[in-house]
Amino acid sequence: MTDLSMQQTTQEAGMGDYFALLKPRVMSLVIFTALVGLIVAPVPTHPFIAFVGILCVAVGAGASGALNMWWDADIDRIMKRTAKRPIPSGRVQPQEALAIGLVLSGFSVVLLWLATNALAAFLLAFTIFFYAVVYSMWLKRSTPQNIVIGGLSGALPPMIGWAVATGTVGIESVLMTALIFMWTPPHFWSLAIFVKSDYGNAGVPMLTETHGLRTTRNHILGYMIALVPVSIGLGFTSIGGWTYMATAVAMNIWFGKACYDVWRRDESAADADNYAAEKTAFKVSLAYLFLHFSALMAEVALRTWDLGGW
């Protein structure tokens, strides 16, 4: 018995376990949106500085992921989806995760400052603080609006990318951030409806469990409607154009229809087809964000042939 438990607790982590602390899947979205923010900015950036800037944003995001895993180790242990994470499974010690999170946060912010400018570094520091402290430590366990407000940290990377290039915050970067911010609730809640979670057991208030699925469906449609002016408004700024606008209109119709389908039905209908409408809304939400940001990149490419913009 003793030998067995000794073996479990003294298991050493491999490099992959430390990498898993950085939440690589979340990191990929951060890299993509930060890169778009940097590329669409009107000021050209040296490729190497751009590379270092994006790397710092990715590492900073990863550091906040490690801090989140350190703080949430107690509830991660309870929930099935998260029980295999490095800390609850015993492969990484909580103190190691804390140390890695703090050191990488410091390194990424200081290096971003040295490589680019103080504003970009400040925005990255704020993003890490918001995710690790405001979301993880405060909102997550206290309000069902946790993912709405906490979503700001996931929405800020394009603003950092823009700041890396320009050293400023413009209406364009504010709207790119607002787009992700308003997109997060319908995206996340459509997933929350069809995935049977055990947040309740872990004491995490989720809208689906605190207010029921009817309220969640209303919220999905409400946030979708609020998302439309942000998406269309971005098209009228200096980084928009015909290509972006056509994409935005098409995606808003598509995603709007998907959210409407989720809103109009009740649980018996959802049960009957195994949550098909909710699954569709979730998939469309992924395409929605990806195509919006891809269209912004396409405008830049088209502009080199004098075809982009208005």
């Binding site: 050493e12 430390y18 190497f48």
Partner: peptide, 26 residues
């Protein structure tokens, strides 16, 4: 597993030096 970890740390340190050197040059 230890070898993998040592190699990983070595590569990270090497990468960090390359980044700082590259930034200086640029």
């Amino acid at each position: 597993r230890r070898r993998g970890r040592n190699l990983g740390v070595g590569l990270l340190l090497g990468g960090f030096i390359a980044i700082v050197f590259g930034l200086t040059v640029v």
